[in-house]
Design a protein around this nucleic acid. Structure first.
Length: 152
DNA sequence: GCCAACGTTGGC
DNA sequence: GCCAACGTTGGC
């Protein structure tokens, strides 16, 4: 089993939206590196830290679990969708998505500042300079440190 | 709202 | 295949 961090802007989809919906499809990934993680590496049962970006404060706010592995992101086929990509064809889709289900919301969000201040987390991609990937893998111990920080 | 970082596009 | 221009992300 692997561990991931997914970013979402709470204005478009927050941890509370996921809590309400119980599960959702993670659509709109339009970056090849993120696409490769989704298509090739993300497996059912993997755990995902849910991160609020462009938020106040920016923070990891909860955990969800992968319940369905990569399948074509059909918003790419829909000219009405903001994620429409005419280069993605039904018979050979460019973009994929996964389904996640809500696990739990942190009692206390773990803010970006706290993560930056924790020397044990200095290698997490979240704090790398210029990191713009919307999802990426994290180590098991990084996952566990952040969970522990949310319980303090 | 600004702007650094960086991925993508398209002309050559 | 190079690289300038452009668009987007996301922290501040």
């Amino acid at each position: 089993m692997k561990y991931w961090l997914f970013k979402s802007e709470p204005e478009s989809y927050s941890i509370d939206d996921l809590k309400r919906d119980k599960k959702t499809f993670w659509d709109g990934i339009r970056n090849y590196q993120a696409r490769n993680f989704i298509r090739d590496n993300i497996k059912k049962g993997d755990l995902v830290l849910f991160y609020h970006s462009n938020a106040d404060p920016n923070a990891v706010v909860g955990v969800c679990e992968i319940i369905k592995e990569a399948y074509p992101d059909n918003t790419a086929f829909d000219p009405e969708s903001k994620y429409y990509d005419p280069k993605s064809k039904n018979e050979e889709p460019t973009w994929f998505m996964v389904d996640v289900k809500f696990k739990f919301k942190f009692k206390k969000p773990v803010t970006l500042q706290e993560i930056k201040n924790n020397s044990k987390l200095k290698n997490i991609r979240l704090v790398h300079r210029g990191n713009r990937l919307s999802l990426f893998p994290i180590d098991k111990n990084e996952y566990e440190i952040i969970i522990a920080m949310s319980e303090k």
